[in-house]
């Protein structure tokens, strides 16, 4: 093959990547069109989801997606950053790689495995320990009691959030560790030189310097949490309603699609599910674009 031919071939392949994204967006939009035509933008704020009367609204899955991801990040961000601190500041050299790899293996475990484990091991465990504890402890306190109301089902929003937190943890950790390592040693040594403790060096030198990168890592993890399907599908309970209690079953966009798509009868039902997919894609696209922008900024500064 000639040089020009090969060059053209590679260029076309690169363009195919763009076409792929365009095709995904277009196909979702065209699939979602019937639902949006029927329900208008009210689709986004309607809670009812009734396949029998063909009345569909996306609010419950959107709410579930946002709440589970929010709780997951609430846990994964501090824990992930602390692990990165441990790996870069405290851990003996020879242990850094093994522990780093072990944490990253958490990201390698397929999500269906978290699902089956969550359903058969984790949910029953929570049902007997954490959930009764939460109900007994916070049941009497005015605002918190509604957050932890209802019987301990085992499965539900909290269980899904905890599993998401475990799945997102390696993303936050590995990117935080990478950007922490990129902090110039001179800066850290200068801080130690004026008598700072390790924590003060981390808190006032490393984290401010690496902030943008850490935010990028967090957004990347958030993108994963929002779109995660199988693990959530197993443990969330697939209930189309919005409850104040995080112990109650709920649903997310991806869980709804996974559970109902093959059983959806009628064009409107299918279209409503594809519309959910479009909403999910739009949300994750924005989050991931912000993540990439942040990481690009820190890459430019470092390199």
């Amino acid at each position: 093959m000639g040089d020009d031919g090969f060059r053209l071939l590679t260029r076309l392949s690169a363009i195919t990547v763009l076409v792929l994204l365009g095709a995904i967006i277009l196909s979702l939009i065209s699939g979602a069109l019937p639902a949006f035509r029927e329900f208008g933008l009210g689709f986004l704020v309607e809670e009812r989801w009734n396949p029998v009367t063909e009345k569909f609204g996306a609010l419950a899955p959107i709410y579930g997606t946002l709440v589970t991801s929010f709780i997951a990040m609430l846990i994964a961000i501090p824990v992930g950053i602390l692990i990165a601190v441990f790996l870069t500041e405290l851990c003996p050299m020879w242990l850094r790689r093994p522990i780093g790899i072990a944490i990253e293996l958490l990201a390698g475990i397929p999500s269906i495995i978290y699902g089956i484990w969550g359903l058969f091991v984790f949910a029953p465990f929570l049902q007997q320990t954490l959930q009764p504890f939460l109900i007994n402890t916070f049941g009497e306190i005015p605002v918190l009691s509604s957050l932890f109301a209802g019987p301990p089902y085992g499965i539900g929003v909290l269980t899904a959030s905890l599993i998401l937190a475990i799945m997102v943890l390696p993303f936050v950790t590995s990117i935080s560790r990478d950007v922490f390592e990129a902090v110039p040693t001179v800066l850290k040594e200068a801080a130690y030189g004026i008598g700072c403790t390790t924590w003060e060096v981390v808190r006032y030198v490393v984290i401010p310097y690496a902030r943008v990168g850490v935010i990028g890592g967090v957004m990347l993890g958030l993108g994963r949490a929002l779109g995660e399907t199988m693990a959530v599908t197993f443990v969330i309970g697939n209930a189309h309603r919005i409850s104040a209690s995080i112990l109650a079953p709920g649903t997310t966009i991806s869980a709804t699609i996974a559970n109902e798509f093959t059983e959806a009868v009628g064009d409107l039902y299918t279209s409503a599910l594809i519309a959910l997919g479009l909403i999910l894609f739009a949300i994750t696209f924005i989050v991931l674009a912000i993540a990439r922008y942040m990481l690009l900024r820190i890459e430019r500064r470092v390199g």
Partner: peptide
């Protein structure tokens, strides 16, 4: 775009 596809939700790929 590729970096975004890398972390795009896989269920959306199924729908596509």
């Amino acid at each position: 775009i590729n970096d975004i596809l890398l972390s795009a939700p896989s269920i959306v790929v199924g729908l596509f």
